[in-house]
Simulated scan of single mutants.
Amino acid sequence: MEGIHPLYDKSMECLLCKQKSTTKKVRSRFVKVAKYDTDFHPIYEDSTVNTLYYNIFVCPHCGFSYSEDFSRYFPPTTMETIMEKVSSQWVPHHFSKERSINDAINTYKLASYCGALKKEKHIILAGICLRIAWLYRINQTKEQEERFLRFALKEYEASYSTGDFSGTQVSEARLLYLAGDISRRIGNEKAAIKYFSLVFERQKNAREASIIQMARDRFQELKQKHETSRPMLHN
């Protein structure tokens, strides 16, 4: 692959202002995952080629920022709100070149803000917050990582209670597992046990055997951690 750059330009038409521009993407042949963290954070063989950096498109014309998971539909008055709160204050800025990790964090934060103004689904906002936490993890900024894990958990819980994950790529079992693992990571082990237990209760789908096993592994880790302390875990 000598001579081929990992990044290429992808043409985009802004969902908001409809103007065209380009954004960088990583060629799939360069994407090689070495392993995953327990919350599905991908760790790449080549840390200099990280697709996470390029998931968000930031329109250089109006500032509207979004991922490919955003819907094309804008609920009533949300376009006007975004134009007022984002576009009217936007200083033309390009994120269309190679991004640093701080550039990536800023694009996700812009997308989180735009997504909230657009009233995007909780499941989409949760994914954005989780990815910001991952980037802070790479940066070894523990306080900010936990802050955004808490934001992600709040959105996952809202998605579960409203059911807005239905019809997306995130299944009920995956959502519950993520809620459990995030709860575990931020130190709320009681909530983690509750969510992992819900995964077990909903193990009807054989295709999700790997998620169920991951929930069992996390559950057992917590159980072993507390087996010498006061009883708090029940099968």
Rank of each mutant, 00 (worst) to 15 (best):
residue 80 E to W: 00
residue 93 H to L: 13
residue 58 V to H: 12
residue 38 T to N: 12
residue 97 K to S: 11
residue 32 K to W: 00
residue 98 E to A: 07
residue 54 Y to M: 08
residue 66 Y to F: 12
residue 78 T to C: 05
residue 63 G to Y: 15
residue 67 S to I: 02
residue 66 Y to P: 00
residue 34 A to T: 07
residue 52 L to E: 13
residue 73 Y to C: 01
residue 50 N to Q: 04
residue 35 K to Q: 12
residue 63 G to A: 10
residue 72 R to I: 07
residue 95 F to P: 06
residue 42 P to C: 08
residue 42 P to E: 03
residue 76 P to C: 05
residue 67 S to V: 04
residue 96 S to C: 11
residue 39 D to S: 06
residue 31 V to E: 04
residue 50 N to A: 02
residue 70 F to G: 04
residue 99 R to D: 01
residue 31 V to I: 15
residue 41 H to P: 00
residue 81 T to D: 09
residue 96 S to I: 02
residue 97 K to L: 10
residue 39 D to F: 02
residue 74 F to M: 07
residue 46 D to I: 09
residue 49 V to Y: 02
residue 45 E to N: 10
residue 41 H to T: 11
residue 62 C to F: 12
residue 61 H to W: 11
residue 61 H to N: 15
residue 87 S to A: 13
residue 54 Y to C: 04
residue 72 R to W: 00
residue 82 I to K: 05
residue 82 I to Q: 04
residue 92 P to F: 08
residue 72 R to D: 13
residue 86 V to C: 07
residue 76 P to F: 02
residue 102 N to I: 07
residue 80 E to F: 02
residue 61 H to R: 03
residue 96 S to A: 13
residue 84 E to A: 13
residue 94 H to N: 15
residue 55 N to E: 14
residue 82 I to H: 06
residue 103 D to R: 11
residue 55 N to H: 07
residue 64 F to Y: 15
residue 56 I to L: 04
residue 66 Y to K: 06
residue 31 V to D: 06
residue 38 T to P: 04
residue 96 S to H: 11
residue 76 P to N: 10
residue 48 T to A: 12
residue 53 Y to A: 05
residue 70 F to V: 03
residue 43 I to W: 00
residue 102 N to H: 13
